[in-house]
C-alpha cells in the first residue's frame, strides 16, 4: 500500500505477511507523522526498496516464502542497503532462538538495530523507532 509522502517526513517500510499487522503499525507510525509503505512479503519489500530507499525498515521475522532472516541477511550483505536501520518485529522466543552473533560474524555487520516484541504496544513501538533513528544518526522526527 503506497502511503502519501510528505517532504521532510521519515520514510518507513513495514514488511509483514499479515495485512492487519501492517495496517496497525502503519496507523501508529502515521499518527506520528511518518511516511509509511507496507509490503506483504520480503520480495515485495525488495521491489519497493528499489524505487525508494527507506529511512527505516520494520520487518516481521516469520513469513512464508522468503523469511525475515533471509531478507535481513540479503539487506546487510549488500553494501548499498547495509546501513538502512532495521527493526525486527518478533516474539521474544524468536529473538532468543536466533543466533544473531553467528549471523553477524558471517556478515561482519551489526545485529538488528532494534526489536519490537509482539503483541505490539504503540508507545513501545514509537520509543524503539525513535531510539533506533537516533542511534543510527538519523535526525529524530517528532510529531
Amino acid at each position: 500500500m503506497e502511503q502519501q509522502d510528505v517532504v521532510g517526513r521519515k520514510h518507513v517500510l513495514v514488511i509483514d505477511d499479515e495485512p492487519d499487522i501492517s495496517s496497525y503499525i502503519a496507523s501508529i507510525l502515521e499518527g506520528s507523522q511518518y511516511s509509511v509503505q507496507t509490503a506483504n512479503s520480503a520480495m515485495e519489500g525488495e521491489t519497493i526498496m528499489r524505487n525508494r530507499r527507506p529511512d527505516l525498515i520494520l520487518l516481521d521475522l516469520m513469513m512464508p516464502g522468503r523469511t525475515g532472516i533471509q531478507f535481513f541477511v540479503r539487506l546487510k550483505g549488500n553494501d548499498e542497503t547495509k546501513d538502512i536501520p532495521l527493526i525486527m518485529v518478533t516474539g521474544i522466543k524468536d529473538k532468543l532462538n536466533i543466533d544473531w552473533q553467528e549471523i553477524v560474524s558471517k556478515l561482519k555487520a551489526r545485529v538488528p538495530d532494534g526489536f519490537v516484541e509482539k503483541p505490539i504496544e504503540p508507545v513501545h513501538l514509537m520509543n524503539v523507532v525513535e531510539d533506533v533513528l537516533t542511534q543510527t544518526g538519523q535526525p529524530e522526527q517528532r510529531a
Partner: peptide, 14 residues
C-alpha cells in the same frame, strides 16, 4: 504463540 501474538496484534490494531 506467534500465531496468537499475530491475532492479538490484529485485535489491538483493529
Amino acid at each position: 504463540s506467534h500465531s496468537i501474538k499475530n491475532i492479538l496484534d490484529g485485535l489491538r490494531g483493529g
